[in-house]
């Protein structure tokens, strides 16, 4: 028991230190400058985050797909905030081996990862390729209609 207790500080120091955690504190992003059909990339906790202002076409396309046919089934509604369906916020890291997919590319008007060819749709869900999961949605909330806080 004493041995484990003695060992713990040596293990714990490997975890993110206070300054790293502070640098990873939540950030606010102003959505007003993002036009419909446009997306931007911000960095939070060292990860790229895509914020997409989706067109009605993109939202309809995402919602008309039978969920059971998806490699990682998830409804579009579950991936956006209610009342703010036009905003898609996803972490831009391919769930296969970590490359950054390119926005507005691929057959699904979503994201295309150039490393091994995974393709995501306009809801950031994986549709084809070796990626096993949908693009993760980071924790975020709307502080006003035109501003979100990520983290």
């Amino acid at each position: 028991m004493g041995g484990v207790a003695a060992l713990w500080p040596f293990v714990s120091q490997m975890n993110p230190d206070a300054s790293t955690i502070a640098a990873g504190a939540p950030i606010e992003v102003d959505l007003a400058p993002i036009a419909e059909g446009q997306d931007i990339k911000v960095f939070w906790r060292g990860k790229p985050i895509y914020i997409s202002h989706r067109t009605k076409k993109q939202i309809d396309e995402a919602r008309s797909v039978p969920v059971s046919s998806l490699p990682d089934p998830q409804t579009d509604q579950a991936r956006v905030k209610e009342g703010h369906d036009q905003w898609l916020v996803v972490i831009g890291i391919c769930t296969h081996l970590g490359c950054i997919p390119i926005a507005h590319e691929g057959n699904y008007d979503g994201f295309f990862c150039p490393c091994h060819g995974s393709q995501y749709d306009s809801s950031g869900r994986v549709r084809q390729g070796p990626a096993p999961a949908n693009l993760p949605v980071p924790p975020y909330q709307f502080v006003s209609d035109s501003k979100i806080q990520i983290g």
């Binding site: 293990v11 490997m14 975890n15 993110p16 790293t20 990873g24 906790r45 060292g46 990860k47 081996l97």
Partner: peptide
């Protein structure tokens, strides 16, 4: 990034192991 991400394959503990290895939220 790719090789440290491999450890996220470990069930349950994967993400924590990767954060421990990185010392942050990504390779840095």
């Amino acid at each position: 990034t790719v090789i440290t991400n491999l450890f996220s394959a470990v069930p349950y503990f994967g993400e924590s192991i990767v954060t421990l290895l990185w010392g942050g939220y990504s390779v840095g």
